[in-house]
């Protein structure tokens, strides 16, 4: 049994941590726009990090639960509800068959993640569950979910606890605190890029607030602000590019490459969002205001290592607790 999409969201796609090793075919890694929320979602339900998780934007889908299951919701807070009753985020939550999961209104962030214990039953394509929307492959039929899509769960031996009409939802006792991962959510630390020194007055210019344009998506965030100027024309051959790269367009506008960026690009690279802030990058919403903070490469590396250590600690604890609970 499974979940059934009663009403689709604006973009609901299955993701994992990405598809690596296929750039010789021009295939980009993709993967969850917020890798931290993705990992927390899996950890809360006791899944390995290779399991696929549903990534939803707002408006988010209405989902009919067709079998008792243990789920978790992480990342953006879209006020998740079950049949009108609010449920907690960042917690393992048991739902029953015939309940409907829906999302009321966006409170924080751009993408929420829904994981189910045991994982969704999908086929991997090139070692990954991530949906490659451009090539219509991966995830569930290579596309965003539509009405009446039914996605099966993998086999699970988990027995759901007793739930009755007075207690139709059971939340387990522990919760993950994700606050530290989203501190100053609209401030992204960047390391100066290869062509930053060719931008007139770079340090001042990059400190201005930028507005996120509405045509921003999983491929790129388009920024609105004072145009940047080059001190000399830059002619460059295309090179490999990565998530978080700030590209300077010929118009003087900036864009930030997001999860579904292409593998190569030829625009000047004026900065790179540090890897420890990729999760915040994935949660930035159109129309919001964004600030950049220049940091050194060492600070960037340290932030990432510290973040990964913290994440690993939380993930290990989650797995231990859920395994203990299952054994009981």
């Amino acid at each position: 049994m499974s979940i059934l999409i009663i009403k689709p969201g604006i973009l609901d796609s299955f993701q994992d941590l990405g598809r690596f090793g296929y750039s010789h075919w021009g295939i980009n890694p993709g993967g969850a726009a917020d890798p931290i929320a993705f990992q927390l979602a899996n950890a809360l339900v006791g899944n390995p990090q290779e399991a696929a998780v549903l990534e939803c934007h707002f408006p988010a889908p209405q989902i009919l639960i067709e079998k008792d299951c243990l789920i978790s919701i992480t990342g953006a807070n879209f006020t998740p509800n079950v049949d009108g009753t609010p449920i907690s985020m960042n917690k393992p939550v048991f739902l029953r068959a015939r309940q409907v999961l829906h999302f009321e209104s966006p409170v924080f962030g751009a993408r929420t993640y829904v994981a189910v214990h045991g994982g969704f039953k999908l086929e991997k394509w090139l070692d990954s569950y991530s949906t490659l929307l451009k090539a219509k492959v991966g995830g569930f039929q290579g596309r965003s979910l539509v009405k009446m899509d039914r996605i099966e769960f993998k086999e699970s031996v988990l027995k759901c606890p007793e739930m009755d009409c007075h207690h139709p939802i059971k939340e387990l006792a522990w919760k993950v605190d994700d606050v530290s991962f989203y501190k100053e959510s609209n401030v992204l630390s960047i390391v100066a890029g290869r062509e930053a020194n060719k931008v007139l007055d770079f340090q001042t210019k990059i400190s201005q607030p930028y507005k996120i344009k509405t045509n921003s998506d999983r491929m790129a965030l388009n920024l609105e602000g004072d145009a940047l100027q080059l001190t000399e024309p830059v002619e460059m051959l295309s090179t490999g590019v990565q998530r978080g790269t700030l590209q300077l367009l010929p118009s003087g506008a900036l864009l930030i490459l997001n999860a579904d960026h292409q593998t190569t690009g030829g625009y000047p690279r004026v900065g790179h969002v540090i890897k420890a802030h990729w999760n915040k990058l994935g949660q930035i919403t159109p129309r919001s205001t964004l600030h950049f903070k220049l940091v050194s490469l060492y600070e960037a590396e340290n932030s990432y290592i510290e973040q990964q250590k913290e994440l690993k600690g939380i993930v290990d604890q989650c797995i231990e607790r859920i395994n203990q609970w299952i054994k009981k």
């Binding site: 690596f20 090793g21 750039s23 090179t239 490999g240 990565q242 593998t263 890897k275 990432y304 290592i305």
Partner: peptide, 21 residues
């Protein structure tokens, strides 16, 4: 090293600092 992208005059390597650490 998670990925190596070849281009006209370059290779770009995706690095995971935590794996190295």
């Amino acid at each position: 090293i998670k990925e190596i992208i070849s281009a006209y005059n370059s290779l770009t390597l995706y690095i995971d600092a935590y794996q190295i650490y």
